[in-house]
């Protein structure tokens, strides 16, 4: 009987030992690495969050001053009209409005365009604030060379008629045109509202 019991006991010991070595120790080491990583990430977040300044409006001031360089105090206009994808409407005084509109281009993130308007269907300035379109193609909508064909011209714009698109960037140019035209419509609605 004794002879039979001893190997069984040894087997149990072996099993117990291997569970500790092969399950508990690796799990513990992995948990420890995970905890240290999480702590370091929390520390990084703490420092990087401090750096981010709270923004008064949707974008950095430089986006708005690119359109009107003599910007003074801006006030938000509550927009309740029919147009979709309107992100922000700001009144910049002297009848000037800064209207931000988003539109889906080629990239998964929609483009966001800020249009400065003072008179019907004419953009005083345009800034593409968010653009993750393909570099060298769709991203060309952010370039001055393209924007100059729209700024100061009379809209609404139709691709191929009063606006030349960018070759191989149809989705992006269509999204840009849609955003600018929506901004024009928003401006008209605000003007009508003021008149009433």
């Amino acid at each position: 009987m004794k002879k039979n019991k001893t190997p069984e006991k040894n087997q149990k010991n072996d099993r117990g030992f291997s569970v500790f070595k092969e399950v508990l120790v690796p799990t513990f080491s992995l948990c420890l690495i995970l905890c240290v990583t999480v702590a370091l990430l929390a520390l990084t977040r703490h420092f990087t969050e401090k750096n981010a300044k709270p923004k008064l409006w949707r974008y950095e001031d430089s986006v708005y001053t690119q359109i009107y360089d003599d910007l003074g105090r801006m006030t938000e206009v509550a927009y309740t009209g029919e147009q979709e994808n309107v992100l922000e409407v700001l009144s910049a005084g002297e009848g000037r409005y800064l209207i931000s509109v988003s539109a889906k281009g080629y990239a998964s993130t929609p483009i966001e365009v800020v249009v400065g308007i003072q008179s019907s269907y004419v953009a005083d300035g345009i800034c593409v604030a968010v653009c993750e379109e393909t570099q060298g193609l769709g991203a060309n909508i952010t370039k001055d060379k393209f924007l100059e064909t729209v700024i100061g011209e009379e809209g609404p714009f139709v691709l191929g008629e009063n606006l030349d698109g960018i070759a191989a960037a149809t989705y992006s140019t269509k999204a840009f045109t849609k955003a600018v035209n929506t901004a024009f419509e928003v401006f008209e609605e605000i003007k009508e509202g003021d008149a009433q």
Partner: peptide
Amino acid sequence: VQKTVRIPAYIVVIAGFVTMVEML
């Protein structure tokens, strides 16, 4: 790091560094 958990451990370390770069 034990051999059996080396790949998950490497992924945790790498993902940690990538998240740090992303935040910065």
